[in-house]
Design a protein around this nucleic acid. Structure first.
Lengths: 208, 208
DNA sequence: CTCTTCATGGTACCGCCGTATCAACACCGT
DNA sequence: ACGGTGTTGATACGGCGGTACCATGAAGAG
């Protein structure tokens, strides 16, 4: 048999080419030929690993969310070992804002996919229900633990505040994308609400 | 000369056909032939009143926002004569949620246009800066007057709260579109924040 | 060694879409 | 009445995009 190639890795390469070109020209404008050229492979190869454009797009969405999840995880790790709830939440929210090229591409493409899923039944709408739900649950949990630790206002409704924070971050992210708003403005608004929710100044456990 | 036709009215008819078909099949999937068929006219006529597809799309966006503005105005008028600031704000925010067919279409298409404008320089990005700015300014003014009237928490930052409310309404609107969230949930979150901002129960000026 | 199977390239087909062209028809001013 | 302009229709054209088909290396199994 011929040189055995890791299919999954190839698919990932092609998917990243899709993400790059879609980030530049828009998801609606991307064709199989563009993806092939961007990935430096032949059109036939794209067809070989993904039988149809629909499957390519589907895989691309999966890859996009995976990359983003990993990125958020890296941000959290970079926030230091055992950061307090507020630092964790702040890192989470700020990571979702389109401040650099990668997050800008993510925000743009994720939004494009979401809008697409409304009318094109082919693209599963499930990711756009499950992912936000998971984010809401995670943030709700963080807020609740902050309340339990006496760091956040115990009278606040954790779930409602979690939904609110995520919703604000999302819309302001789009605002940044279209040039309506600067990142500083978005950060200021988010910090304002965190200040409202977190009563006490936060101290990581002192080292001795 | 032939039967004189009101061009502006014709354009409006065609634009509404565009909005209907785009609301059903997605903005990306709409072609001139679809618009012509939906409007019950020939393809040539669409070309006659709009020289290119780009101009058709541009006009469609304008028409969409005009219709929405009128709709919001009607909602406000329906809220009764001289409603208090809170009722006004609530009507404003709830009108933007995709709860019926028309608002659903508006939300979907406006989002589609916004995403498009990020990558396609042809579609002016200006509307997506000016309209949100105007909404923010209007809502900020309403909040400030509520504060001046002693109805809302005077310590709140009116502009930040206005931005927050609009941002929450927008993202939750998309959440409703994709089926992640029900309208009741969105309304509950918005009301929660209004309850936080408005200290006093509101009374319209009693009639004598 | 050769045969099978995986991997890859080149290219053709078909349909759709935006645009342009040719033509007919209707009405109004003069 | 009649010409001319505003309006409408049918159709053709060029391009592009997704998919399908054929062919050719490349390498491990027997």
């Amino acid at each position: 048999m011929p040189k055995r190639v890791d299919h999954e890795e190839r698919r990932a390469q092609i998917a990243e080419a899709l993400i790059r070109v879609a980030g530049r020209r828009g998801l609606h404008a991307v064709g199989m030929r563009d993806v092939a050229a961007e990935a430096g492979v032949s059109l036939r190869l794209v067809q070989y690993y993904f039988q149809s454009k629909e499957k390519l797009l589907f895989y691309g969405l999966q890859h996009l969310t995976d990359r983003f999840t990993a990125r958020v995880g890296a941000r959290l790790a970079a926030a230091g070992p055992d950061p307090g709830p507020r630092a964790t939440i702040e890192a989470l929210l700020l990571a979702s804002l389109p401040t650099d090229e990668e997050s800008r591409t993510f925000h743009l493409l994720y939004s494009s996919y979401a809008i697409l899923s409304v009318t094109d039944g082919a693209l599963a709408a499930q990711p756009f229900i499950d992912n936000p739900d998971a984010a809401e649950n995670a943030l709700t949990g963080l807020l609740e633990s902050a309340q339990a630790a006496g760091l956040a206002d115990p009278g606040a409704d954790a779930r409602i505040e979690a939904i609110s924070l995520l919703a604000m971050a999302a819309t302001m992210g789009t605002g940044i994308l279209v040039g309506q708003r600067g990142p500083e403005s978005a950060v200021a608004v988010l910090r304002h609400h965190l200040d409202r929710l977190f009563t006490t100044a936060e101290r990581p456990a002192p080292p001795a």
